[in-house]
Amino acid sequence: MAQEPILTARGLIKRYGRVTALNNADFDLMPGEILAVIGDNGAGKSSLIKALSGAIRPDEGEIRMNGQPVSFSSPMDARKSGIETVYQTLALSPALSIADNMFLGREIRMSGFMGSVLRKLDHKAMERVAREKLSELGLMTIQNINQAVETLSGGQRQGVAVARAAAFGSKVIILDEPTAALGVKESRKVLELIQSVRSRGIPIVLISHNMPHVFEVADRIHIHRLGRRLAVINPKDYSMSDAVALMTGAKTLTNEAA
């Protein structure tokens, strides 16, 4: 590909005491693609994603966005650069409402005196946008946008978290196991959402254990093993069992795939 990658990482190293979670890991995300990241439990997928989304700071290595070196010291930094992440833990505040959660850290204030001096939030506007985003997703069977997140089911919570990322991600969206807690129907909705986000030109990083989902939507598959990138494969050239064999070490790659 002649295109320049939008997000790259070179030689990332992250150690937790004596455990090395990332061992010289590389990463490339091309514009407009869906890149799946797969790997066994403990392969370091989560650490890689956290480094890219600013949740952890790698001990060594370099992350570049559009060719420019970036250093994220917090998830807020990454968000300001347009990287939006749905964490496995979802990062929702149980006692706050759906609308409050979607706008946490980027609330809309009232216009004029009420907003600039009294710092009053525009609850109506936030509720309206939240409702729009959720119905775009088609995920929700929620009557009340003001209900606390703790009253939602697991799948609904996941929907709120995905909707939040889709609503605000401008450069890259990272999804860590977005379908893990969802039923068949809801998973389908999320996969459709992923494709619709890509059709807007925004690249997506998808971490998943669900091979059928990965092979269905991914343009390329990044296989992570023992803290580093083992290979990047094209799902059209390999079967699901090949991918599983590679990530578990049952098979090694003979010809280097692009």
Partner: peptide
Amino acid sequence: RHLYAVGDDPEAAELAGVN
């Protein structure tokens, strides 16, 4: 709102963009 979020689950609040 951030006060409630921090008291509720500080880790989630941090990841969601609260300092």
